[in-house]
Design a protein around this nucleic acid. Structure first.
Lengths: 248, 248
DNA sequence: GCAAAGACATGACGCCGGTCAAATCACCCA
DNA sequence: TGGGTGATTTGACCGGCGTCATGTCTTTGC
């Protein structure tokens, strides 16, 4: 395992052998994902882990690759994109710090259905697959952690399928904007965390269509100025895109 | 509390006590989902289970309800549909015998994002949520089972998101048809397991559009006659809809 | 300061799929 | 057997979104 030092990817450099700096380990322990885990188990789980840094737009892995490690975003942002030979490409999910990804692929040892790319400079924790699968089998705590995480992402995907099938581009954009703020009353100003073309891919439209979607939302009290977006009436926007109407 | 469960495990009499017919339990044990589970654990897991029969088109639960039990399809077919106040409705997934569903909602105790309806007369196994959540925490076997099941459904959803964003209605229909057969060479005849309107909802289009999609596929060697569909050239159809091209 | 490049907005146009309406077909039941 | 009801098909039409092209603004490098 100590060979990890020599086989660092051309992209990003792995840290040392048992690799984790104390500060990284501490940071991991503070993640919502792991903070409920008993320290001993956390230490065990991360014993073979490593941290890699990726530059903006750097590919973390390609669709079709066989997974080797569970990944966790420590810093930055990661986009998961699916591709079809046609030339089509779409962003299925954007991950923020503290989220794990590709658990399903690592558990089933099936090829990735998506590629991962760093949308901003990102530090990624890698938990080697063999050890991870063993840990999951042996530790109910870890298994439950994984279940909780997968259940959450599962729900997000279900929501996404419904939105794609049932809502317009402008409604999906409104949902995305509302997802950027915790406020559910009055008005607010949010800052777009990505370029518009990345947001377009996330919303599932072309950049041109995103522009027009913003134009539509203008008459519903959404003003755009560069990366700053002002929402005049949050409840009205929520009604417009049917946010939180799972409870019919 | 653990003593009682291991005692009950071996005894056939205990099954009927808790209301599960012996034949049902036998059938459950044969499901791919559960067949790897040690019999003792299976017996424990199903100790408070019950079996309910639903008629065709009967609602099993509504979107927005709070989940009370994990469900498993023993017989028949179940559709999961999402609704938006607009009036829009879409089928997110169709479940066959042997598949569990709503594990994510039961684990997180969040309201259902979808409604479930019996597409055919169906027998559904219900595993009460409290006990199920406890079992998952205490038994690594059960937790791992759930993880495997959720990982599988997760992958299916990812695929669905990609297909919705990147493929045409006719391509999605072709994917659906190919999913009805295990053959990957030559030609075949498949039987549609649902009405065309259910298939339309599953593919994510209106029934009218499904008709037209079938018409498109006609010139690619797909002949429809009632519920029988003849596929003249399976590989050609696979190329058309980019099936199995996750490995780019 | 200026040129080149990229991000974004906007217009023109076409296609896909939704909607509405009508016709045909299948099946059920009196 | 005949009517009735629902499923499916087909046509006409429209709107949303993709595509291509152009224009503007900002950024970057010299």
């Amino acid at each position: 395992m100590d060979t990890s030092k020599s086989n660092r990817a051309a992209s990003g450099a792995a840290y040392s052998v048992h690799g984790l700096k104390a500060e990284d380990l501490a940071a991991i322990g503070r993640l919502p994902l792991f903070c409920d885990l008993p320290p001993a188990i956390l230490a065990d789980m991360t014993a073979e882990a490593s941290v890699t840094k990726y530059q903006r737009n750097e590919i973390i892995f390609h669709q079709g690759d066989i997974p080797t490690a569970l990944r966790v975003v420590l810093d930055g942002q990661v986009g998961l994109t699916g591709t079809v030979t046609d030339g089509g490409e779409t962003m299925v999910e954007i991950l923020k710090a503290g989220e794990m990804f590709i658990a399903a692929a690592v558990l089933t040892e099936k090829p990735f259905l998506m590629s991962a790319v760093a949308l901003q400079t990102a530090r990624i924790l890698s938990l080697p697959g063999d050890r991870f699968r063993r840990d999951v089998r042996e530790s109910p705590d870890i298994a439950f952690l994984m279940l909780a995480s997968m259940a959450k992402h599962f729900s997000m995907l279900v929501r996404e399928v419904k939105d794609l099938k049932l809502k317009s581009a402008a409604q999906r954009l409104a949902l995305y904007l509302l997802g950027l703020t915790a406020k559910r009353e009055g008005s607010t100003i949010v800052r777009l965390p990505h370029s518009k073309s990345v947001i377009a891919a996330r919303v599932g439209v072309r950049p041109e269509t995103l522009s027009r979607a913003f134009a539509h939302l203008r008459e519903r009290g959404v003003a755009v100025d560069g990366h700053a977006v002002a929402i005049a009436d949050i409840p009205a926007l929520r009604v417009y895109c049917h946010e939180g109407e799972e409870i019919i």
